[in-house]
């Protein structure tokens, strides 16, 4: 039942001259891009006012495939670029889509400080537990005991709990889903696009070519089946106490959803105080001259 005249509904939102994309067969990134574009569409935001910034890596290619204003930055510097973009043009909805190696290894400092300042942006971190594009080196998220090309006897470094780091740094919206939960992912992205403040979303995604091959995980389809068994939805879980491992539960959900004053609101408050202070100063000075 092939119909060549018909167009795929996603073709409006993707750069079809760039397709087929470079991602491997059974990678979760294509699903995440679809969910992202659907979420933006459902949020009802003008697509001319959405900007996507991404770093380096497999996930860094997202900016090249989405038909929005997008920028492909240097390694780890996606968040500083997005902060500048947001503060210079505050009408924009800025989204950062990048990998775990980009956001937490080289760009870890930028991420925690953007979360501390509560800059109004949406960060989507695609976690595949390894540096996929460069050949499977150890990432800060590689679980204990997992094999990678720089850990042939198993990894002996304690991994980051990405959700916990973001929550501890002070993000105002923290969520975790897997690539299998694409409907919930769409809803979360829709919610994040409308919400003010620093929003962090971790998406656990299969890496069939590198991580699964080193750890005998099978194909991406087998990993998605595994996610189906392992994932549990619990919105009230404490983000500090749900690290990811090779086995065991993947606890998903929206863990933190609170309102804090954003960076720009604080800047405005500071300026207002200063203005009031200088006005009072002039008054006092006049009084002194009168006295």
């Amino acid at each position: 039942m092939q119909n060549n005249a018909a167009h795929h509904p996603m073709e409006k939102y993707l750069r079809m001259d760039r397709m087929p994309h470079i991602w491997c067969s059974s990678c979760g990134l294509g699903t995440i891009v679809n969910s992202f574009m659907k979420g933006i569409k459902n949020a009802g935001i003008d697509t001319n006012k959405v900007a996507v910034v991404s770093g380096i890596g497999c996930t860094g290619r997202v900016a090249g495939y989405i038909k929005l204003d997008s920028y492909h930055t240097t390694h780890g510097r996606a968040i500083p670029f997005a902060s500048g973009l947001k503060l210079a043009n505050r009408d924009l909805t800025v989204a950062v889509i990048s990998g775990d190696g980009d956001l937490f290894a080289i760009g870890g400092n930028h991420l925690i400080h953007a979360a501390r300042r509560n800059v109004d942006m949406n960060v989507i971190c695609v976690n595949n537990f390894i540096y996929g594009m460069t050949g499977g080196q150890n990432a800060p998220t590689t679980p204990l005991g997992a094999y990678s090309s720089t850990a042939p006897y198993g990894n002996y470094e304690q991994p980051f709990n990405l959700v916990g780091v973001a929550a501890a740094a002070g993000a105002s919206y923290v969520a975790r889903w897997t690539a299998l939960h694409f409907h919930r992912l769409t809803d979360t992205i829709k919610e994040m696009a409308k919400k003010k403040g620093f929003c962090f979303l971790e998406v656990v995604s299969p890496c069939s070519t590198v991580f699964a091959r080193k750890n005998k995980g099978g194909t991406g389809l087998d990993i998605l089946r595994e996610y189906k068994d392992r994932s549990i939805i619990d919105h009230e879980a404490d983000p500090q106490k749900i690290p990811l491992g090779m086995n065991g539960e993947i606890i998903c959900g929206v863990f933190i959803n609170e309102d804090r004053p954003t960076f720009w609101e604080n800047v405005q408050k500071g300026i207002e105080k200063r203005v009031v202070k200088t006005k009072n100063y002039k008054v006092i000075k006049n009084r002194e001259s009168v006295v």
């Binding site: 039942m1 092939q2 397709m19 491997c24 998605l224 089946r225």
Partner: peptide, 19 residues
């Protein structure tokens, strides 16, 4: 309705078949 498949775009991951 109708199901439309672009056969040459497919990379054979099997997600649609499994789920």
């Amino acid at each position: 309705g109708s199901i439309n498949i672009f056969k040459d775009r497919c990379k054979g991951c099997g997600f649609c078949i499994e789920f």
